[in-house]
Amino acid sequence: MWILATVGNLPVLYPHNTRTVHYSLLRYTWDCAFALAGQSARTRHTEPVRVLHGMWWTFAVILIYTYTGTLIAFLTVPRLTSLINSLEELANQKDVLWTYRAKTAHETLFATAQPPSTYNKIGQLLKERPDLLVHTDDEGINAVLRGDTAFIKEKSWLDFAMERDYLATKQCRMAQVNQIFFSAGFGWALQEHSIFLQLFNNEILRMSQSGLFTIWRMQNWPSPNECTAGNPGAPAGPKSLHIKNFSGHFFIFGVGLGLALLAFLVERLLLRGFFRDAKSEGEWRGGGDLVVCWVGLIK
């Protein structure tokens, strides 16, 4: 605005502008800030500056109302929740089907469960739909990525599978249900009355109490990322605004800047043409007549 007002404010184009007050760059910067606060301003404006100022006001109004609308939506839109948060919820709906690996402990667990337990409901679907069973872990992951399918698998294996998928795609394409069920313990088998039994028990207990297991897990387990950090299954509200969400606003302001510069160039070209014609014909009589001719040409 300061450049267009200083360079473009010529007496030939604006003879009625008899004021010789020159506003500083800081004054125009302050006027732009006033527009964001809804306040008016009074500065010297040429036609290009009027165009640019009008587009800046438009930009400011749209920006304010967009932010206000997003804030209202944040306060009124209900928080988003996951469709499934437990094994029971999975078994009591049919929008999302499920699968597990065939010929594993999972198949034995669900296939032999007695009704009306949740495990029995899980196994009943696979009895009716044996085509849903997968024979490898990769088939289970692919079934999840195709959509509308859940894969029941050990949490430790799923943690590494999600980590590999995130590193390969940089996208959160999978999520785990928070509930953990069918916890299985692991141990070492020794001979009955072995002299090493008490030694193994004491050392394993000592490593557990000293936090060594926790250190090993931190060193070798996948690090938390944007998909697994915190509580992945917890309800999530609307996302925060970023500068890219306002790209359309800056496009509008860019159009206004282009129109203002175009108006400035048109004025400069018309001014140069009027000077050339007046000099060649010897009919230059002052800035006032020139402005009348220019206005008539525009009309």
Results as ranks from 00 to 15, higher is better:
residue 4 L to S: 01
residue 5 A to Y: 01
residue 9 N to F: 06
residue 16 H to T: 11
residue 22 H to Y: 12
residue 25 L to M: 11
residue 31 D to K: 05
residue 33 A to Y: 11
residue 40 S to C: 07
residue 49 V to R: 00
residue 50 R to N: 06
residue 50 R to H: 07
residue 51 V to L: 10
residue 52 L to A: 05
residue 52 L to I: 04
residue 58 T to A: 14
residue 61 V to P: 00
residue 61 V to R: 11
residue 64 I to Q: 02
residue 67 Y to N: 09
residue 68 T to L: 12
residue 69 G to V: 12
residue 76 T to E: 08
residue 77 V to N: 12
residue 101 R to S: 04
residue 120 N to F: 15
residue 132 L to C: 04
residue 145 L to T: 03
residue 148 D to H: 13
residue 151 F to K: 02
residue 152 I to K: 04
residue 168 A to M: 03
residue 171 Q to V: 07
residue 178 N to S: 13
residue 183 S to P: 02
residue 185 G to I: 07
residue 196 F to Y: 15
residue 201 N to M: 07
residue 206 R to P: 00
residue 211 G to A: 07
residue 212 L to E: 12
residue 214 T to Q: 12
residue 218 M to N: 14
residue 218 M to S: 10
residue 219 Q to I: 13
residue 222 P to F: 01
residue 224 P to A: 03
residue 224 P to S: 05
residue 225 N to F: 12
residue 226 E to Y: 01
residue 231 N to L: 13
residue 231 N to E: 06
residue 245 N to Q: 09
residue 248 G to S: 09
residue 252 I to C: 05
residue 253 F to P: 01
residue 254 G to A: 12
residue 258 G to A: 15
residue 269 L to V: 15
residue 276 R to M: 07
residue 276 R to A: 15
residue 279 K to L: 02
residue 280 S to H: 06
residue 286 G to H: 06
residue 288 G to T: 13
residue 294 W to A: 10
